[in-house]
């Protein structure tokens, strides 16, 4: 059933750690979609799974099959490139669709189009700090 008998110990352990890390990140992202209250907050949650969640499991697959075949097998990179390009496109379209639908319904939580004028920019942005945290 499992090919692990043929794997060297370091490859098996590295694969195990990477697989667990990727799956855990994906699960955390999924829990995030349950916990966040609004659509625009929920948009952030699946990117956990599609960025490093996918990346870790793809790396695990690369390590596992490279060690099995005793030559570098990197075709998993294709999936990684594809997911990193396509997921932002989907999320952007969805965010624009959500914005459009909310504006049609006059939702007060959604910024009006006037926010896109140059002069209102300073009012919308928080004031400066030293090292801004990301995320």
């Amino acid at each position: 059933m499992t090919p692990a008998e043929n794997l060297p110990a370091w490859a098996a352990l590295l694969t195990a750690v990477l697989v667990l890390l990727g799956a855990a990140l994906t699960l955390v992202g999924a829990i995030g979609t349950l916990r966040f209250g609004s659509f625009f907050e929920r948009v952030h949650a699946p990117t956990l799974g599609t960025s490093w969640g996918t990346g870790a499991i793809l790396l695990a697959s690369v390590v596992c099959f490279s060690a099995l075949g005793s030559r570098p097998i990197v075709h998993e990179i294709m999936i990684g490139v594809f997911i990193t390009i396509t997921t932002p496109v989907t999320l952007m379209l969805l965010a624009r669709a959500a914005l459009y639908r909310d504006r049609v319904e006059d939702d007060a939580n959604v910024p009006p189009r006037t926010m896109l004028r140059r002069r209102s920019v300073n009012a919308a942005a928080p004031e400066s700090g030293d090292e801004p945290p990301r995320g």
Binding site: E5, A9, T26, L27, A30
Partner: peptide, 20 residues
């Protein structure tokens, strides 16, 4: 190590199913 790999993959699959 084979057992560790097998069980961590099974655990990962359980987590992915939970995410789904």
């Amino acid at each position: 190590t084979a057992a560790i790999l097998l069980w961590s993959v099974i655990a990962a699959q359980a987590m992915l199913v939970a995410a789904m």
